Amino acid sequence: MTTRKLRAILLTISGTLFAAHLVGEVGIYAFDADKNWLLPFNMDREFNIPTLFSSSIMLACAYTLNEIKKVSEKHTSKDWGLLSKIFIFLAIDELFQIHEIFIIPDLRPYLSPALGSTWVIPYTALVIYLGWRFNKFLRSLKKQTRQKFLQSATIFLTGAVGMEVVGSYLVRSGNIRLHSIWYGSITGLEELLELLGLIMFLIALANYLIKKNGAIHLDVSIYI
């Protein structure tokens, strides 16, 4: 398995899931299809096929980051390890929608329509802090690797935060309805951008580790 083949496989699955999500949204809102059959492919729900796929990529990123930590220089090993833990948290959050704990309806009247999903406020603050925290670490990387990491983060955040803000604004300003094909398309695009960012990051990590180790070895044992 090469990183090029892996990227092609992951992109194909992502595109298929996005198409299935759109078909489901059209089926529900245009043809009154049974939601129970289509929810497993809804990219805006928790603990279904898209979220399992997304969280699996996050866990793969966490694993690869931990492997890089083992072969990295002492002064950067803590940074690789912290990134690995962050991706484990993101995988759990993706599965169980932990960020929705920070949605506080009572705050909405005092905020812009774009901030209807109030979780974007603490998470954006956390992103800014982490950007400051990893600034020195990013500067220690080679230019090409640093650019790939920043590009993948930009794509992921455009989906996770940017599209969430767009969707909230359009719904709360009355431009679209919450339960509609339009909002479903926005949430689908949000998740697709997240997947594209994650895939780019995973491939960049894999290539980085391969340059360090020559290959990535996975050993799986089953005991009966």
Rank of each mutant, 00 (worst) to 15 (best):
Glu46Leu: 07
Ile104His: 11
Trp182Val: 12
Lys5Pro: 00
Leu192Phe: 15
Ile176Gln: 02
Asp44Cys: 04
Leu107Asn: 05
Ala153Pro: 04
Tyr63Pro: 02
Phe137Leu: 07
Gln144Asp: 14
Met200Phe: 09
Ala204Ile: 09
Phe18Gly: 02
Lys148Cys: 12
Leu11Thr: 04
Phe41Ala: 00
Lys85Asn: 14
Asn207Gln: 13
Thr16Trp: 11
Ser55Met: 04
Arg7Glu: 14
Pro109Gly: 12
Ile199Asp: 05
Pro109Asn: 10
Arg172Trp: 06
Ser168Arg: 05
Ile224Pro: 09
Ser152Thr: 13
Leu192Glu: 00
Ile121Ser: 06
Ile28Val: 09
Ile121Glu: 00
Ser54Val: 07
Val127Gly: 00
Ala114Pro: 06
Lys74Asn: 13
Gly167Lys: 03
Gln151Asp: 10
Ser221Trp: 00
Gln144Gly: 09
Ile128Gly: 07
Asp32Glu: 13
Lys85Tyr: 14
Arg133Cys: 03
Leu126His: 04
Val71Thr: 15
Val23Gln: 07
Leu141Tyr: 05
Asn175Lys: 13
Ile9Ala: 06
Thr64Met: 07
Asn175Val: 05
Val71Asp: 11
Ile121Asp: 00
Thr16Cys: 13
Leu39Met: 12
Ile104Ala: 08
Phe87Ser: 03
Ile186Trp: 05
Asn213Thr: 14
Thr3Tyr: 01
Ser55Glu: 00
Leu192Ser: 01
Gln147Thr: 15
Ala125Met: 13
Leu209Asn: 01
His99Gln: 12
Ile203Ser: 02
Thr145Lys: 12
Leu39His: 12
Gly116Glu: 07
Ser221Lys: 14
Glu191Ser: 11
